[in-house]
Amino acid sequence: MTNALLTIDHLQTHFFTPSGVVKAVNDISLRVREGETVCIVGESGCGKSVTAMSVLGLVAEPQGKVVGGDIRFDGVDLLQLSPLEKQQLRGNDIAMIFQEPMSSLNPVLTIGEQIMEPLWEHLLLSKKEARAKAIELISLVGIPRPEEIMNAYPHQLSGGMLQRIMIAIAISCNPRLLIADEPTTALDVTIQAQILDLLREIKETYNTAILLITHDLGVVAEMADYVVVMYAGKVIEEGPVLELFSNPRHPYTRGLLQAKPVIGQRKKRLNSIPGQVPNLIGLADSCYFHDRCESCMSVCRLKQPELKQIDDGHRVACWLYEEESGLA
């Protein structure tokens, strides 16, 4: 087993709003090994993106702040870095692509300029070298006529092409970790598959570790080596992808998997989990999922379950499995 590239330990990122403190990321720990793809799954607003932004140090200050825990990348504590060191790390060792390719590129700069910027900044290439490298990157991500694309503006390209450009920018400095925040959510299905294929190719060619954030279990099944399920700012279950899909333990994970249509099975209605993610302000000391859970017990309303190992590499935070170890 290879070494951990990114280690997040007990990370807490809070947002201080007028109506109270939002604990968007509440004691999260996870690990990404070299060349591994880890997926974070969860509903909207459960803290997936904030976790990613915390890694890059891009949480909007002063409202948002990392208040606890640590993030280590290749042994270096990212939270202790100076702004300059962080800036040198971003786009160079850790790169990121986002959900909305249409609005993620600057509308008044050419595509070429935007690809060349990190090359100038991190690899210190000359204009000429950067240009050659940018053209190479554009063809690498599968866009024809790269010279023409260099001089195009974002509004002239489609969403799928823009996401390819975003990927080209992200891999331009050979990052060791690529964070992809819902990279296919805004795209239509055929384009989604192409973008995922491209990400997989990159992973295989460059041995890049990928931290993929998504709410789409189809994407998880296709991409992940290891899955982390988040709910209301906490990790509630994690495990290798096969184990988690074949043997989900947490009622929330089960609900998610049942909510997914299966080809060949025609159901009148898809299963859904009733209710919504709770308001993250002023949460009581209970299991955050208890009011939506079909197997809710009295202990669930009183105490929060901890993340416990139940099988090799499979961990879950639920009182249902605490009993076995003689608790409650």
Binding site: R90, G91, F98, E100, S103, N106, E117, P118
Partner: peptide
Amino acid sequence: QDFIRTARAKGLKEKT
């Protein structure tokens, strides 16, 4: 805007 976040994620200098 999103593209400012992208520019920061690329590791550009704050001035740029």
